[in-house]
Design a protein around this nucleic acid. Structure first.
Length: 748
DNA sequence: AAAGTACGGGG
DNA sequence: GTGTACGTACTTT
């Protein structure tokens, strides 16, 4: 006799994905043996209301209207972050992970004068927080015969430094022409790549296209579909086709789940409009659009995975979120696990300022005026992670500044106190990041294997962005854990540190050539690397924040302002380190709106200049530089420059008809709108200048979308662009625009 | 001359 | 609390 025993199944592997599904969440795992397994976990998210007992009946009445969905759980004692004291709150269960937010809104609408906590967290994150889980967590997962996750034993930590990642099968889908947005392409063909092969899908009909794509998806069975422009263009287009010709597209691994799509948005972020494409997320596999992810752009998949593990935001979502959201999530997780109530955040209208932006705008950070022109034998000293370090060292956090319990005068210039009894949430969470990054940086330096070095570099770069954001976050008035006094305190400490560093250096006989916020450029006759290292050590020891010797420059240039040649500008400079590396800020090669052609010329010139060890040698190579420019300009004059290299990409800030001046952006936006492909504020105008005078061609510039090689281009304008980009380098050596133009046989 | 428009920053 | 850095470079009016 045989009995069939339905037993639990144990998987050793990684948590791959989590998303809401009816009465809980759906989880996907990748097992070590290569299985892709889904499971369901029941989960009831909850929120809290700070309410007096008299109002209990009112809450009960609202809850009873959503009978079966919302339920009053109990009175709870939880910690209010600013006071650090326990307060009494009412816990409400919402048995619907998909519509959690809608139920919360209903409560909020009827209880406008009460404070809500944990009410705008995502149920998926609450699930992860509560179960000590995180994306890509390695461990043992136990699944019941009816597909429920019943237990897990995690052999991994969200903040681990040594962790294994699952081997992922990857498919790439992209337009066969890259380098120009699909919006500007006349016919899009898609190219599918996997297993070291790629296939251009040239189909005669939509049916054929979809059938062939489905074939590839089934054969590859990707965990991860990487696209270029998948969010905005390709996936929406494919699904539209699929609906039209009724060929289901097999993008999802979970056939029961919908695609998660969000709308595109344009929003203001500190004086600039930003357009964010809507997202197109998949269920059971990831879709990552490399053109719609800041963190992938900066630090690749390795950085994205590092961040997702740390912030506990699912990978597809983390890819599209801002870094600020990631940092916030890290703090939320910490608060959640310490029974600290999380205040509902108010509507976010602004993005966070990065430290730098804030420093400039709030005049918090110090900027000296550079000594104009070329210098030799200058050294650079940088404070490493100055702001996060200050926050950790001095325990600066929204709830520790001006706390109730302490009276001290720790903050320079300001009469603020800093708590000595309780460690703040900001230092608590930052410390993890700082330590982790320091270790990655160390390994990056020490590692013998190139692939390891690259991996560690990507991870530490991702963490760097968290650190860069954290300062802005502290001063951001709408942040959950933000407070302006905390932000001011950091500023005060930073100015103090910077000024003390400066004065120590000057006392030792060094001349300050320039200084920005946490960077100092110094000079002293006869001083070498060892002297600067010694100076760095002395300053670090004195101030308590690490300052490091970045290197010495063979030459460095702080150019004059173009609008007023008598004055210097703080944020543009270029210098060649003694190791041959170049550091450039603010010049054309660094700008996103410089056409590739101009960038190439300036880059070529700079590369030559890197070979010079002294200003004298720089002067000697002028004829050589002129030759290089001549070569490029001859190509330009002959009409042989590829149109792509002449494309200017600039963000438009408003709708086509809102422009008051007919500048090139307005012209292009209008032309696009008329052709039915209107650009939204924050999207990029991509165009070629045909005739900037408008005499020969009144349109002046043409969107790349409509560009034909016969249209030609404005040789004069592009030449001028080139000469200006070289003048900024040669001008301080005594060779101005008209001299350069003359050498190049161009009328100035 | 004044107003309009866009860019950078961090490593 | 329905607002949107700030300084530079360049163009248009």
């Amino acid at each position: 006799m045989q009995t069939i025993v339905h037993r639990n199944r144990s998987i050793k592997g990684w948590l791959f994905d989590v998303y809401p599904s009816p009465s809980g969440v759906t989880l996907w795992f990748i097992s070590e043996t290569g299985g892709r397994i889904s499971a369901h976990a029941p989960f009831v998210p909850k929120f809290y209301i700070r309410i007096d007992e008299n109002s209990f009946a009112l809450v009960k009445k609202i809850a009873s209207r959503f009978k079966g969905r919302c339920k009053i759980s109990a009175w709870k004692e939880m910690i209010e972050i600013y006071s650090g004291e326990f307060i009494k709150v009412l816990e409400v269960y919402v048995n619907d992970t998909i519509n959690f937010g809608k139920y919360v809104k209903a409560f909020e609408a009827e209880l406008p004068y009460y404070v809500f906590f944990n009410s705008d967290l995502s149920p998926v994150q609450m699930f992860l927080f509560e179960n000590d889980l995180f994306p890509l967590a390695y461990g043992e997962y136990v699944i019941s015969p009816d597909g429920k996750l019943v237990a897990q034993n995690i052999e991994d930590r969200f903040d681990a430094i040594d962790y294994k990642l699952p081997p992922l099968s990857i498919m790439i889908i992209k337009p066969s022409i890259l380098g120009i947005a699909p919006k500007y392409q006349q016919n899009i063909t898609i190219e599918v790549g996997y297993d070291n092969r790629s296939y251009v899908i040239n189909a005669d009909s939509a049916q054929e296209l979809l059938t062939r794509l489905n074939f590839h998806i089934e054969r590859c069975d990707p965990d991860l579909i990487i696209t270029h422009f998948g969010d905005e263009i390709i996936l929406p287009w494919l699904t539209l086709l699929a609906d039209k010709v009724k060929v289901p597209i097999k993008l999802n691994r979970d056939p029961s789940a919908p695609f998660v799509r969000t709308r595109d948005v344009s929003y203001w972020s500190y004086g600039q409009i930003v357009h964010k494409a809507g997202s197109f997320e998949l269920a059971g596999r990831w879709h990552l659009d490399v053109e719609n992810s800041f963190i992938i752009d900066q630090s690749d998949l390795a950085g994205l995975f590092e961040l997702a593990r740390l912030t506990r935001i699912p990978v597809q979502r983390q890819a599209r979120e801002t870094i600020g959201t990631g940092l916030s999530s890290l703090q939320l997780a910490w608060a959640y696990s310490h029974n600290i109530l999380i205040p509902a955040k108010k509507q976010e209208w602004e993005q966070f300022k990065s430290a730098y932006q804030l420093l400039l705008s709030d005049r918090g950070g110090l900027i000296f005026s550079p000594k104009m022109g070329y210098h030799e034998n200058v050294a650079e000293l940088d404070f490493a992670s100055m702001y996060p370090s200050l926050m950790c060292i001095h325990n600066i956090s929204p709830e520790t500044v001006n706390c109730k319990c302490c009276s001290n005068q720790k903050v320079p210039e300001l009469r603020y106190t800093l708590c000595e009894n309780r460690k703040g949430i900001v230092p608590e969470t930052l410390e993890t990041i700082l330590k982790k990054r320091a270790e990655y940086k160390k390994r990056e330096k020490d590692s013998r294997s190139e692939s390891e070095r690259i991996e560690y570099h990507k991870r530490q770069t991702a963490l760097k962005w968290l650190l860069v954001t954290c300062f802005g976050y502290l001063g951001y008035k709408n942040a959950r854990f933000g407070r302006i006094e905390a932000h001011e305190a950091v500023n005060a400490f930073s100015r103090d540190a910077f000024l003390r560093a400066k004065s120590i250096a000057e006392k030792r006989g060094y001349e300050i050539i320039h200084g920005i916020v946490d960077c100092l450029w110094l000079k002293k006759n006869g001083a070498g690397p060892d002297d600067y290292r010694k100076l760095s050590e002395e300053i670090s020891k004195e101030i308590g924040v690490n300052i490091s010797f970045e290197g010495m420059y063979k030459w460095i240039l702080f150019p004059n302002s173009r609008t007023d040649p008598e004055i210097p500008v703080a944020n543009r400079y270029v210098g060649a380190y003694t190791n041959g590396e170049l550091k450039v800020r603010g010049l054309e090669v660094r700008r996103g709106d410089t056409p590739l052609f101009v960038r190439k010329v300036q880059a070529d010139v700079l590369e030559l200049m890197t070979n010079a060890s002294t200003i004298k040698e720089l002067k000697l190579m002028i004829p050589e530089i002129i030759q290089v420019i001549k070569m490029h300009l001859e190509k330009l004059r002959a009409g042989r420059v590829e149109p792509l290299e002449l494309v200017i990409r600039r963000t438009i800030s408003k709708e086509a008809d809102e422009y008051e001046n007919s500048n090139l952006e307005a012209i292009v936006a209008k032309a696009m709108a008329e052709a039915g492909v209107a650009l939204k504020p924050g999207e990029t105008a991509e165009y070629i200048i045909i005739d900037s005078t408008g005499k020969r061609y009144p349109g002046k510039a043409k969107p790349f979308l409509f560009y034909q090689p016969e249209d030609g281009y404005d040789t004069y304008k592009y030449t001028e662009f080139v000469i200006k980009s070289v003048e900024i380098l040669l001008g301080p050596l005594g060779y101005n625009y008209s001299w350069i133009a003359e050498q190049l046989n161009v009328s100035a």
